[in-house]
């Protein structure tokens, strides 16, 4: 047997609450990240990502409290991204209950943060989060919530992140994010061929076929979903069944 491919659920969190519409029948407090994370674990999600989109100083303390409460109840891995600026921020997130931390803008500003984090916590804790947008025949890296264009080529940057200590790449296509027209398979394939660490494809999932496509043809180790499961377009179970039918190794829950 072998390593299964993962289905990861991302929750956008602002000031301790899940933002963007999340629809679950029978769940009274639809915006509580802890309850939603638990619900997705029961449904068979392989991991949870909290993306802190507030990322102010006050929001950080709220996020740490949230991580603490989540870790008390969640028994699958939790990654926290957004607003991680320093190695001490990483330490706080991990101590609070995150298993991994995502770095994005801070890594572009100061790539050493990945090396320092990896040395202290192990490479398996350090997720390089890359937001990429197509630019002619290649892809450009953007930071600050996809608002700021950099000079970095996404494939080259992914390689550098790994050489600096990132144990995983969370690769988001800005072009596809929220569009539900499918992942950027070409981008994913280019990055996963260039690095030897797992690549999580993100941005564009609108149907089970998209998840299957990016895992089979994009070479991704994991697919990140958000809107389609929050809005009830598809369930985790349906997505995983589709993966299994395509002969992708997958963990099913009874």
């Amino acid at each position: 047997m072998s390593l299964t491919r993962r289905l990861i659920v991302c929750l956008d969190v602002r000031e301790g609450r899940v933002v963007k519409g999340v629809q679950f029948e029978g769940l009274r407090d639809v915006g509580d990240p802890v309850e939603l994370a638990e619900r997705y674990e029961r449904d068979g999600a392989d991991e949870i990502v909290f993306l802190d989109i507030g990322a102010t100083h006050e929001a950080r303390a709220t996020m740490l409290d949230l991580a603490r409460r989540t870790a008390e109840r969640l028994f699958i891995p939790l990654t926290i991204g957004g607003g991680i600026r320093t190695v001490d921020d990483m330490a706080s997130a991990l101590r609070a209950g995150a298993d991994k931390v995502g770095v994005n803008s801070a890594a572009v500003l100061r790539p050493e943060i990945m090396t320092e984090g990896a040395r202290r916590f192990g490479t398996q804790c350090i997720v390089a989060s890359i937001d990429a947008k197509r630019d002619g025949s290649s892809w450009r890296v953007y930071t600050s919530g996809a608002r700021v264009r950099t000079d970095l080529d996404a494939v080259e940057w992914a390689r550098e992140c790994v050489s600096r200590g990132a144990g995983e790449i969370l690769l988001t296509s800005i072009d596809r994010d929220g569009a539900r027209t499918g992942y950027d398979v070409e981008l994913t394939r280019a990055v996963s061929a260039a690095v030897d660490v797992p690549v999580i494809a993100s941005g564009g999932a609108g149907a089970a076929a998209h998840v299957r496509d990016v895992l089979v043809n994009g070479g991704a180790d994991a697919a990140l979903v958000a809107g389609i499961v929050h809005d009830g377009v598809a369930t985790i179970d349906e997505l995983k069944r589709a993966m299994r039918e395509a002969n992708i190794p997958v963990r099913m829950v009874a």
Partner: peptide, 23 residues
């Protein structure tokens, strides 16, 4: 080739009944 190994892997050839007991 892919290191670290991150994700869910199957537990094979178990001789400790703890595994079967916990499924």
């Amino acid at each position: 080739k892919r290191t670290p190994q991150i994700g869910w892997n199957s537990i094979d050839d178990t001789t400790d009944p703890l595994f079967a007991g916990a499924h």
